[in-house]
Design a protein around this nucleic acid. Structure first.
Length: 754
DNA sequence: GCGGATATC
């Protein structure tokens, strides 16, 4: 690239001079690609470009360039299906650039991806293919990293969440001439919401073209969703279908159902290792603990067999893979398989992985896939307002995706540990979209900011349960983000600026009034990153001891603040995080988030304040938390457990909780349902604070009768007496000083059915 | 006794 010489082009030399906006032909484009000069950039094309172009020509999507341009010319919205290896993600956006000529029109072409890593790597690849440097004509935009140059970048890869955020400031998405949504079959929350917005926007912006790209064959659903006219057959959005290019994978089923899928998976690994030709194995399990346990068992089994007879079996490297592993640990999946023991059978590598290996990470060299048919999936129960992770059967689409992992480099085999009958008749076609499995409080706030008036009747691809939306609206009303007409309040507008859950956003916004915005900013940042506490299977004792040293007795929120501050104190010491069993990666990430949130606070003129007394500080923090998390309070039950407010659900403190003893009243960040109902990240509170800082929620006439209500009634009585005793003058003064405080802490009520 | 995966101005 360095040796490429600059040339001066007169308009006659512009390879795209004869191109008519959105009227180009495949022949014209082919010709421009084959030229001497870069069609988009005043420079000669490099040798590397030509070499890559030869490879690009082999991609299945290339053979359909003509068909693509015909469809693109005639339609505003196109649905495209292309399996792995079709080249759609890298080629289609380039095709669009030749038609849209965004560099001449002052527009951009956007292509969204569900994941950051994929966004970066595909942008890099396409920059190479177009013979430009990344971040110039071709760039990407992900959180914390904007690799674009305004005025120069005309092809932008971005995460779906990023485009959704952009839509909040520019609902017309006016910078874009074409928007391509990729990997739509994954049905992430952001993709689903974007589909709704774009469908709507397509009616207002007739010049905006939209391409929906999906890997699986559920295209008809999207064709129907984006159909023009009123549901007549002829009005379906047109479909472009591109074949994939992978190697064949032979699929095997069990004859009978397996009782223990972990055990069956391990047997399958050993069976392959003994009987099948060389090639790596990928075994899908559901979680960290299961995976570590399986790896341990597998090693023991192989060691046992090798001890008995070293010639009976080759060495087997067992590598665990899940997202919370550090990058160097994840790198191990790319190590070569172990060499054969002296004169014995060849060695083999087996990767035991969660779903990361199904979508996010591709591992070359896998020849055998073992699919027990399960994964952990998020489930939301709006009735009890709990998101939980449940081991559930995967969908057919998922099973096919898993099988495909065996055929990336050569023909492979997939062993499904369930019967063909189960596959055909029991498995769902597609995994349920995230929008049906999530708490939508955040999404509803975003939609309100986007100007969607009727959230229940929003045109979802799949509409969530009305109760889920009601729960979200209820929370937002209580928080004061929405008024009685479900309009965004000024507070709600501020909240929507933060990339945070509504409770957290509210806490952060009001924290300045509690003189602890410095601290809440840190706590909120820590709650926005993966867990900081590291607890390796081999060092649980030392890890727990280290955590105990960092814990603050009053609550886990304060402990998070403490860890962050101690980390910054020792940031020069490279081993501090390691010796204290905390994740440096999470802490750096928290620092990043903190910087970003601080910038938003500055913009909203929310001051960063603190107080010098540690006692006051710890109280202030927990009072501020109540103004956001008043619905997440629990009271200690006679049996030793806790009962949640209003719902009266029996929960236990999560084992990771660092509270000193079992305080009567606690506030918690999350309710999780794993082996039993737990509350996690818990702090002790004084019950009078509830009446003081969330008075409208703690209107006891709305509480169901029971032990919790009785306990609250006693507290309320004492609170009233105390309030009465406070001199009237002083009270007035306080109210006058902070008039906004009441508005923030005393939200609107909403009609709900409990 | 203890976390699937992903994302965010």
């Amino acid at each position: 690239m360095e040796s490429a010489e600059y040339i001066s082009l007169s308009s006659d030399d512009d390879p795209l001079a004869a191109f008519i906006h959105r009227r180009v032909t495949a022949a014209q484009v082919q010709h421009a690609m084959d030229g001497i000069n870069n069609p988009f950039f005043n420079r000669k094309l490099s040798q590397q470009y030509k070499k890559i172009l030869l490879a690009r020509r082999q991609l299945p999507v290339y053979a359909q360039m003509h068909e693509f341009y015909e469809l693109f010319k005639r339609n505003q919205i196109i649905v495209m299906v292309g399996e792995t290896g079709s080249g759609k993600t890298t080629q289609i956006p380039q095709f669009v650039c030749f038609a849209d000529l965004p560099h001449k029109k002052g527009k951009m072409v956007a292509c969204t991806q569900p994941r950051r890593v994929a966004t970066m790597s595909v942008a890099r690849r396409v920059a190479d293919e177009m013979d430009v440097s990344l971040g110039k004509q071709v760039g990407y935009s992900i959180r914390f990293e904007d690799m674009t140059q305004p005025g120069t970048t005309f092809l932008k890869y971005m995460t779906d969440g990023m485009l959704l955020r952009e839509a909040m400031t520019d609902p017309e998405l006016s910078r874009y001439s074409t928007i391509i949504l990729d990997e739509v079959h994954e049905r992430t929350l952001a993709t689903d919401i974007l589909m709704g917005l774009l469908k709507n926007l397509s009616r207002r912006r007739r010049d905006l073209k939209i391409i929906i790209m999906s890997a699986t064959l559920d295209a008809l659903k999207f064709q129907k969703y984006f159909s023009t006219g009123e549901g007549a057959q002829g009005s379906l959005a047109p479909l472009l279908k591109v074949p994939g290019r992978t190697h064949p994978v032979e699929v095997f089923y069990t004859k009978e159902a397996e009782l223990d899928y972990v055990e069956a998976g391990l047997r399958a690994v050993l069976m392959i290792h003994r009987a099948e030709p060389p090639g790596d194995i990928l075994l899908f399990l559901t979680g960290e603990e299961e995976i570590e346990g399986a790896c341990k068992k597998l090693k023991e089994e192989v060691d046992f067999l090798l001890n008995a007879d070293p010639r009976s079996i080759g060495p087997l490297a067992c590598i665990p893979l899940y997202s919370t592993l550090s990058p160097p640990q994840q790198q191990k999946i790319f190590d070569p398989p172990p060499p054969p023991s002296r004169g014995g059978p060849p060695g083999r590598k087996v990767i035991v992985s969660t779903n990361v290996a199904e979508t996010s990470l591709t591992i070359d060299g896998i020849v055998y896939v073992i699919d027990p048919g399960y994964s952990k999936q998020k489930v939301y129960n709006p009735r009890i307002r709990v998101e939980s992770l449940l081991v559930s059967p995967i969908s057919k689409a998922s099973a096919q995706q898993r099988a495909g992992r065996a055929g990336r480099t050569r023909p492979g085999k997939c062993f499904r540990l369930y019967t063909e009958d189960v596959f055909m008749n029991d498995l769902e076609e597609q995994t349920h979209p995230e929008v049906l499995r999530s708490n939508l409080a955040n999404t509803v706030l975003e939609l309100a900011k986007l100007g969607v008036r009727d959230l229940v009747r929003f045109d979802y691809v799949d509409a969530p349960a009305p109760e889920t939306i009601m729960r979200a609206l209820e929370l937002l009303h209580y928080l004061g983000a929405l008024d009685n007409q479900s309009n965004l309040t000024p507070l709600g507008k501020k909240m929507s600026q933060f990339p945070l859950d509504p409770q957290m956003a509210k806490t952060l916004i009001v924290s300045a009034e509690f003189k602890c915005s410095e601290e809440i900013l840190t706590i909120v940042s820590m709650l926005s990153v993966p867990p900081v506490w590291v607890r390796p299977v081999t060092a649980r004792g030392p890890a727990d001891a280290a955590k105990a040293r960092l814990d603050i007795p009053d609550g886990d929120h304060l402990s998070l603040l403490n860890v962050y501050d101690r980390f910054l104190e020792h940031i020069e010491e490279k081993t501090w995080a390691w010796t204290n069993f905390v994740s440096a990666r999470s802490l750096y990430q928290a620092r990043n988030v903190r910087t970003q949130l601080k910038a938003i606070m500055d913009r909203l003129k929310i001051p960063l304040v603190s107080t010098s007394s540690e006692h006051d500080r710890n109280d202030n923090i927990r009072k501020a938390l109540i103004s956001g998390y008043f619905m997440q309070v629990a009271h200690r039950d006679k049996g030793g457990g806790y009962l949640t407010m209003k719902d009266n659900q029996l929960v236990a403190l999560h084992p990771s909780c660092g509270l000193d003893g079992t305080p009567d009243w606690v506030i918690f960040n999350e309710f999780v349902l794993t082996t039993q109902p737990y509350i996690r990240t818990v702090s002790a509170i004084e019950p009078e604070w509830l009446f003081k800082h969330a008075p409208s929620y703690f209107d006891l006439s709305t509480f169901p009768n029971g032990a919790t209500k009785n306990a609250l009634e006693i507290v309320e009585e004492q609170f009233k007496i105390k309030e009465e005793a406070e001199p009237k003058e002083q009270k007035k003064k306080r109210n006058r000083k902070k008039p906004q405080k009441k508005a923030a802490g005393d939200p609107q009520k909403v009609e709900t059915q409990d």
